[in-house]
Simulated assay, not measured.
Amino acid sequence: MYTPPAFREDDPAILRRIMREARLATLITATEEGLVATPLPLLLAETEGEFGTLYGHVAKANPQWKLPTAHDALVVFAGAEAYVTPSWYTTKQEHGKVVPTWNYEAVHAYGPVEFFEDEERLRDVVTRLTELHEKSREQPWAVTDAPDAFIGAQLRGIVGLRLPIVRLQGKRKMSQNRPEADRIGVAAGLAKSEKAGDRTVAAMIPTGPARTS
Results as ranks from 00 to 15, higher is better:
residue 143 V to C: 04
residue 83 Y to I: 07
residue 144 T to C: 02
residue 92 K to Q: 14
residue 141 W to R: 07
residue 120 E to P: 00
residue 164 P to F: 09
residue 121 R to Q: 11
residue 134 E to K: 05
residue 173 K to S: 02
residue 50 E to L: 11
residue 143 V to T: 13
residue 37 A to S: 12
residue 206 P to F: 12
residue 108 H to P: 00
residue 191 A to R: 04
residue 193 S to W: 04
residue 172 R to V: 15
residue 149 A to I: 12
residue 87 S to I: 12
residue 203 A to K: 08
residue 50 E to G: 07
residue 155 L to I: 10
residue 97 K to F: 08
residue 167 R to D: 12
residue 127 T to I: 13
residue 161 L to K: 07
residue 97 K to V: 10
residue 73 A to G: 05
residue 213 S to V: 11
residue 85 T to N: 00
residue 170 G to Y: 11
residue 181 A to H: 07
residue 156 R to K: 15
residue 92 K to E: 11
residue 109 A to R: 02
residue 175 S to P: 01
residue 89 Y to D: 01
residue 7 F to I: 09
residue 184 I to Y: 04
residue 209 P to R: 03
residue 207 T to D: 07
residue 198 D to N: 05
residue 118 D to Q: 05
residue 78 A to G: 07
residue 13 A to G: 01
residue 63 P to Q: 08
residue 139 Q to Y: 10
residue 162 R to M: 10
residue 52 G to N: 03
residue 136 S to K: 13
residue 155 L to G: 03
residue 142 A to M: 12
residue 149 A to H: 09
residue 148 D to V: 14
residue 143 V to L: 14
residue 63 P to R: 10
residue 70 A to H: 12
residue 192 K to S: 09
residue 5 P to G: 06
residue 171 K to L: 10
residue 66 K to N: 05
residue 191 A to F: 04
residue 188 A to I: 00
residue 175 S to H: 06
residue 103 N to L: 03
residue 22 A to P: 00
residue 127 T to S: 13
residue 193 S to N: 04
residue 159 V to H: 04
residue 115 F to T: 06
residue 24 L to A: 10
residue 100 P to T: 09
residue 33 E to A: 14
residue 89 Y to S: 03
residue 56 G to N: 08
residue 29 T to P: 00
residue 32 E to Q: 11
residue 33 E to R: 13
residue 38 T to Y: 07
residue 34 G to P: 01
residue 147 P to V: 07
residue 150 F to Y: 15
residue 114 E to Y: 04
